[in-house]
Design a protein around this nucleic acid. Structure first.
Lengths: 236, 236
DNA sequence: CGGTAGGTTGACGTCCCTCAAGTATTGTGG
DNA sequence: CCACAATACTTGAGGGACGTCAACCTACCG
């Protein structure tokens, strides 16, 4: 398939490149791959020879500690660029793993960088994406530093609502393929406590789980829960 | 004073610009200011018309919550660029405050951006600095998500040791102007608990406080404390 | 039908917070 | 130089949030 006809091209970091630049992108492309849920796409994103765009499904970016615990740093959704230090090589050792079955586009890292260097619009797209990640990181840092478990989980869910809205979806009912363990590893609690928190939110009526990975959201109630952090996390 | 003769020029994001570009930088400069300890340099870095380089002293970048609590996101040291979203305008509402008496260089944001757009090396310097901040953010996210209070404090101190080494200092004894409240707000605990943790480290002999804002470090012992997180936070 | 992965619940322990009272240490005006 | 206040730090007691361990339940898949 042509990159210029890709269903997620409008959400990628290369969405606004010039029409004649699509060809170079297709030449840098080294495969259209699928992965199963739970599969690891990259073991150490700094050492990968490839860079990836997520086409379908969800994935997450996480760090592994010596004692086996993990910290999830970011969730990827279709259109997201999954190889963050594609330019700089620096950063921590972190891996990318599939939350659902995934389709992804793989590019050669060297050729991809070459394109970046040649295209101003491409470069701007990457810079904007890195800025979004930085903003997201800072918000998560504030959440982990100041909020309690229930508030952090509420903030995590509301972040997904925001992103669903950004893709033109409703927000009242969102796709939510996370299991308890991924919620736990994202907000820094144990799986069991994550279960208690989710169940607590459910009993309050703030969320409703359906059996197929979707979540009905009472946005007002979730907003109430994180009201202490609201002015900073969702600036006007 | 000329920017090209500034004592901290070697640590700034514009350290590798071409000799003829220093003049433009000086034209963008709108003042060499001093601030007292505790003073706020910027209330909302997104809305500031100026950008700042820290010349002398320490400062920190923090977010304020609705209930009055604060989360410190980053500590600035001489040479650091203190206005992170100088290009993008996005991000959360965060402020910059002086940890010690401070000397800083102020530039006009619009002119500064103009320089950025014109100079490839300047742009590279900013990109590298943003990457370092992203890396730092990710490390802190992992720390807050997975480590206990004592481990987080140890990691914070070791980060300062690392940065002191980067500036060519010894590392065995570092400048450390943080009070308990800033330690607390950086690692997400209360001031009182921060006091207990620091005192605990002192009793173990891992650190020794002197009365004038310096700290003697037993690096091996601090390293032992955060050994669970070592492989990921300090990649080989 | 049994196996496995994911989720739920309870009891109990640890880590950290809260409140309150106290002790240095620093700063300030006389 | 001292008196006094303000700031920073210390310590203890009690409670709440979250972790740990173990048992159990449920849904799914071969």
């Amino acid at each position: 398939m042509k990159c210029s006809e890709c269903p997620v091209r409008g959400y990628t970091i290369y969405r606004s490149i010039d029409p004649d630049e699509w060809k170079g992108l297709e030449q840098a492309r080294s495969g259209h791959l699928t992965f199963k849920r739970g599969q690891v796409i990259m073991e150490d994103h700094r050492r990968s020879d490839s860079v990836y765009t997520l086409v379908k499904g969800w994935a997450y970016y996480y760090a592994l500690l010596a004692d086996g615990r993990r910290q999830i740093l970011h969730f990827f959704q279709p259109g997201d660029f999954m190889t963050i230090p594609a330019l700089t090589e620096d950063g921590i050792r972190a891996s990318v793993r599939c939350l659902t079955d995934v389709a992804a586009c793989r590019f050669d890292k060297v050729k991809f960088r070459e394109l970046l260097r040649q295209s101003q619009k491409f470069n701007d797209g990457l810079f904007e994406y890195v800025s979004v990640l930085r903003r997201d990181n800072e918000s998560r840092l504030i959440e982990l530093g100041t909020l309690k478990a229930e508030e952090r989980v509420a903030a995590l869910i509301l972040e997904f609502v925001r992103r669903a809205r950004g893709r033109g979806e409703s927000g009242g009912e969102i796709e939510f393929p996370l299991h308890l363990i991924e919620i736990a590893e994202a907000v820094g609690i144990t799986e069991i406590h994550a279960g208690r928190v989710i169940r607590g939110l459910e009993r309050k009526g703030a969320i409703t789980r359906t059996n197929c990975g979707t979540l009905k959201i009472d946005e007002a109630q979730l907003g109430e829960i994180i009201s202490a952090a609201r002015p900073v996390l969702f600036p006007g």
